[in-house]
Amino acid sequence: MELVSKRAFLQMVSPLIQFKRFRGKINIQRPRLPHFEKAKYLAFTKPWFINPKKDKSQVELCKGFGEKLFEKDKENPFQEIIAQELRRWLTTSRLVVFYHHNPMNAEDEFKAYVMFKKQKMHFKKYGKRTLEMAVGGTPYETILDLYVSHNMTVFSPEPEIKKMLNITKKFPQLVLLAGILEGKLVSKNDLVKYSMIPSLQMAQAGLVQTINSVGSQLVSNLNSHQNTLVSHLSERAKQLEEDK
């Protein structure tokens, strides 16, 4: 009875629906022109604005850029402290050497710093702006021409030129440009020549040795005739004894 009642009524069958766009995909690159009425409303509602650069010359357009380009740097108290430190190093160091700094990894740069530090030399890097603040209006203003690209500076309380050159040979990334020796600006060739001159202690030792050699040579020269005469007399005495 139950089976008959179920078959007596119609059953709803849900069809399988698959949506598909008419005539394939939409062409995004070359879209189809809209209908005339739609195109009219789109043109009417299209936003518009006035170009602020319209009817302006090239000078007026570049005016803001020029003002920012030549704007003076703001005062930096920390940079002033570094400039004072740099000025102090220049005035107290007997030897100051300037290098052109080629690309160099951090490990080699640290090795160079340690090697200079062992010789009581200070390996420093300063920007040109800091250098201008330090040497502006001083006799050291000439060194600004050396700071064109990346540079390194070495300050030494003693003029140990030979030690400085030996360390420089180990790092080809450091190109020696010039230096300040005893307050005088010297070139690279002059530094090489000065390195061949012995130190003051060696010069003093050589002078003492020369003076001592002159004295001993004088004494030997004064005694040479007497010694020669004594030797001749002793030989003549031997000859006379043999004749007897």
Rank of each mutant, 00 (worst) to 15 (best):
T142C: 09
N166I: 14
P159C: 03
T138V: 09
L176I: 06
N166R: 07
T138N: 12
P157S: 06
P139T: 14
T168S: 08
K162F: 05
N151Q: 09
T138L: 06
T142N: 08
L177D: 15
T142P: 04
L144S: 07
E141A: 06
V175R: 13
K170V: 10
E158A: 01
K169F: 12
P139K: 06
G137Y: 06
F155N: 00
T153G: 04
N151S: 11
S156K: 00
V175H: 08
M152E: 08
N151D: 11
N166H: 05
K169P: 04
A178Y: 09
Y140K: 02
N151V: 12
G137P: 05
L165C: 02
I167W: 12
I161V: 15
E141V: 08
L177Y: 12
M152C: 06
L165Q: 12
Y147E: 09
T153A: 00
T153P: 00
E141G: 02
N151M: 12
L146V: 11
Y147W: 15
K170T: 12
E158Q: 08
L165T: 10
Y147G: 00
Q173M: 07
M164G: 01
F171H: 13
K170P: 09
G137C: 05
L144N: 10
T168K: 00
L176D: 10
I161L: 15
E141F: 01
L165A: 07
T153Y: 02
K169I: 11
N166S: 14
I143H: 00
I161D: 05
N151H: 08
K163L: 14
G137N: 03
M164D: 15
M164P: 04
V154H: 00
N151I: 04
I143E: 06
K162L: 14
P157A: 04
D145S: 13
P172Y: 11
V154R: 00
S156E: 01
I167T: 10
Q173C: 11
L174G: 00
E141M: 15
G137F: 11
P139Y: 10
E141W: 07
E141Q: 07
L176M: 10
E160Y: 13
E160Q: 07
I143F: 05
Y147K: 03
T168P: 10
A178Q: 13
I161M: 07
K170Q: 10
A178M: 04
L174E: 10
D145K: 11
V148S: 13
N151G: 14
E158T: 09
Q173K: 05
I161C: 01
P139C: 08
L165P: 04
D145I: 15
A178E: 09
D145W: 10
F171N: 07
H150I: 15
S149A: 10
Y147R: 06
L146W: 11
T168Q: 08
T138W: 01
K163F: 02
I167L: 02
A178R: 13
V154C: 02
T168M: 01
V154T: 02
Q173L: 01
E158W: 05
M164A: 12
E158F: 02
F155Y: 08
V148G: 15
P157L: 06
I161A: 01
H150D: 13
K170L: 06
K170R: 11
I161R: 09
M164T: 07
F155I: 04
P139D: 06
P139H: 02
L146E: 11
G137W: 12
F171G: 09
Y140N: 11
L174V: 05
S156P: 04
L177R: 14
